[in-house]
Design a binder for these strands. Structure first.
Lengths: 228, 228
DNA sequence: TGTACATCAGTGAACGCGCGTTCACTGATGTAC
DNA sequence: TGTACATCAGTGAACGCGCGTTCACTGATGTAC
């Protein structure tokens, strides 16, 4: 009757009926088990029947909560994007600088590597994320741009005049953001360098090399940070 | 009787019997189809039966050539590492500078994104690559170090004194390489920055943003390159 | 407060599928004398 | 050159498995009067 709680309402709204609260509870149980499974065997290993068994229900029961396996995975992906966007926005609004944003990103990534990979890992050929996920992705970039803009250009990432021109002419991703090309360049440098360290680290490509990845991460941040 | 041709002998040695040449041919056919399948649906979608069908053979026939599905995948991974190591070594020996190495890496990655992801993408939890693959990985880093060392430190990647000290004390990965810490730092910066751009680009995270990823890649290279 | 009805979570059986892998076999190719 | 034997690529049937998903159903919970 009333508007359905809808996707991702685990937070629990105000005046929910017992049935609605129960539904939300089970939905979130299912998702929790799904994340467990992903952590154990990757996103491909996710099985509805196995989740049901862990929850002590029969397989078909899950279809009361998710239309299909794909729908469940899509919602996990959405939640992952959402959590990073929230993390970024919170950091940006609390006045964190680039180091703060970097630290938040690193914590988010290390906190749950499989969640990181669900967003930034190997894409499944043929899979296209629904539009609203793209919207969240833009939200993430917007928070990054905000922080870069207020950090200013005291420690700029160098760019040739031609690349600078290119950026100022191709700024769809910064739609509505007044940042000058130097800030765009800096945001991109920040973004790619953080992911460079994180993706290699989380995939285990630094194991056995000896050094501490965190110090490498910090060094990369320092290079983009004013009061180094 | 004579030593078996062994793994990855598609290149075709000298005095092979017709049977050995046939075996090598079929092995390479199987791998080719496997790569096709991976390109179409990712490494998880690789199916022995499907490969057999495409080759017009029955499923069990493949077991004459590979002991199991895992063995086939491991060999594809090994080939992927091998091809990058060869690419790097060739570039290093032909006297290419850092830009040359970067271009080679980028070409290698764009040439077959799924091959790139097989090496640098989301790891399968629980999978451990055999030792010889680790050896190839070290070979890749060695070639990178060679090029960085001969490029010198005219455009150094900045590092705090403490990080420099850390690197000179944790250089297992550069075992046997006389490069000073500044060169180590530069090699790591090169490595992570290139992968930062490439992994985001190949995973499609730049689509719709407007700018040309290649120019971003070039800008990142330029920053690490002397005669910019 | 009690009765009649609607909603809806969950079950169990079943479907069809494709998977990796084994096994005993056939028949062609190569080798030894 | 021909015969006897060994090697080995490939087949077809079969096994057991777990998967996603559908369907008709039971029984508990909530709602209306």
């Amino acid at each position: 009757m009333a508007a359905n709680a809808g996707a991702g309402a685990e937070a629990g709204a105000d005046v929910t009926s017992p049935r609605e609260r129960y539904r939300a509870q089970v939905r979130s149980d299912i998702k929790a088990r799904a994340w467990d499974q992903i952590a154990r065997s990757g996103a491909t290993g996710l099985s509805l029947n196995a989740i049901a068994k862990e929850l002590g229900m029969s397989g078909p029961a899950l279809y009361r909560y998710f239309g299909s396996r794909d729908e469940l995975i899509t919602e996990l992906i959405r939640d992952a994007y959402r959590s990073l966007a929230d993390t970024f926005r919170a950091a940006a609004e609390s006045g964190a600088g680039l180091e703060g944003l970097a630290r938040a990103l690193r914590r988010w990534a290390l906190d749950d590597p499989q969640r990181y990979f669900l967003v930034y890992g190997t894409p499944v050929p043929g899979y296209h994320a629904p539009d609203d996920i793209t919207t969240i992705a833009r939200e993430i970039m917007a928070a990054l741009l905000d922080v870069c803009a207020s950090a200013g250009l005291e420690a700029p990432a160098p760019a040739s005049a031609s690349f600078t021109a290119h950026l100022s002419q191709h700024r769809q991703w910064a739609a509505g953001h007044p940042a000058p090309p130097g800030v765009l360049r800096k945001a991109l440098a920040f973004w790619t360098r953080m992911h460079g360290v994180l993706s290699l680290e989380l995939a285990g490509h630094f194991t056995g090399m000896g050094f501490d990845p965190e110090r490498l991460f910090d060094a990369e941040v320092a290079e983009l940070t004013p009061g180094r």
